[in-house]
Write a protein that binds this DNA or RNA. Structure first.
Lengths: 182, 182
DNA sequence: GTCTATAATTTGATAGAC
DNA sequence: GTCTATCAAATTATAGAC
């Protein structure tokens, strides 16, 4: 059974969905409140400022995303299977949830975001680079740390771009056409 | 000599720069007016609605971007040189101008954009796919139309993602690390 | 924790004078 | 073409009652 989520959790869920459609400026306290079934002032009780809410969204998204990926050092799973798992995480977000990667969208807007929110977007990517670097370091073949990092950056960039393309062209198959190259 | 731009052109320039930093909801008529040196009401004379302004921004950006790429069938230039030119166009936008690709940012926000604006973002990508497909069809080697299109999609996705990553990590070298894989 | 009430500002947009 | 004046609505945020 899924526990009945508390209000803070409900707010985060609703806000995340909205942020992943329209970005940081694409949702308001009133929008969230209406959907959660409370008043905007009550949202401020849980998240005093929008900047705090935005940062909480980014933090939560990063934690959940990384938890879903599992341990990149797991000896039971091959490095190629881990890469497939990584790609699958983005694919699910796009195809099943019908949404953009939260931190991909925030990253695109990063120049105009409050610092704490921008910091969370950056943190998401640093963590993702770390995870993929472990995977690529495990894969057979000789590679320098720079090459490992570059490979990680290439995968992340391709996936974020694939989501943008698939959504702009309104065609989920575009995502698969792009990722077949990974 | 550069001609003194008329007001509509000045508005478009200022608005584009703002949109490429913060997205469609990241600029206002007042912001633009202030920088151009007129009043917000005067901006409405040139662009009656924000949706119309947003669509004009996308159209203009796409035209300028494609014009800068030149003819993909130019026999004087090799297909590999054309690909480098394509990558260079994104690199300049990021490194020299310090900005995101307008349509990459709009594409990320596409789910919450007014239809005419979303249509321009889509149009940008369709045109880019067309341009790159001509280049890849010219390159040596046997490829199906599907493979050509997939290669084009992969390049575009990688470049848009590379911009997001480089900006989020505040490190232009990330762009080069990603594109060395193309 | 949630509410009402309200503040202060910003937003996109229009009417009409010049 | 640009202005002043104005609008209605939306925005983030706070104070204080319950």
């Amino acid at each position: 059974m899924t526990e009945a989520p508390n209000k803070a959790e409900q707010i985060l869920r609703v806000a995340e969905r909205m942020a992943r459609q329209g970005g940081y400026n694409g949702f308001s306290y009133r929008d969230i409140a209406k959907e959660v079934g409370i008043k905007a002032a009550s949202v401020h009780y849980h998240f005093p400022s929008k900047e705090a809410l935005g940062a909480a969204l980014g933090r939560r998204y990063t934690e959940r995303f990384l938890a879903g990926l599992g341990d990149p050092e797991d000896a039971e799973v091959s490095s190629s299977a881990l890469l497939e798992r990584y790609i699958g995480a983005f694919r699910r977000a796009l195809v099943d949830e019908g949404q953009m990667c939260l931190c991909g969208l925030l990253g695109a807007e990063v120049a105009e975001l409050p610092r704490p929110v921008a910091a969370e977007a950056r943190h998401f990517f640093e963590k993702n680079i770390g995870w993929l670097s472990v995977v690529f370091a495990r894969a057979p073949g000789e590679r320098s740390p720079e090459q490992v990092r570059a490979a990680a950056l290439q995968v992340i960039a391709t996936l974020e771009g694939a989501m943008i393309l698939a959504r702009s062209l309104d065609d989920p198959q575009v995502f698969d056409a792009v990722t077949q190259g990974l």
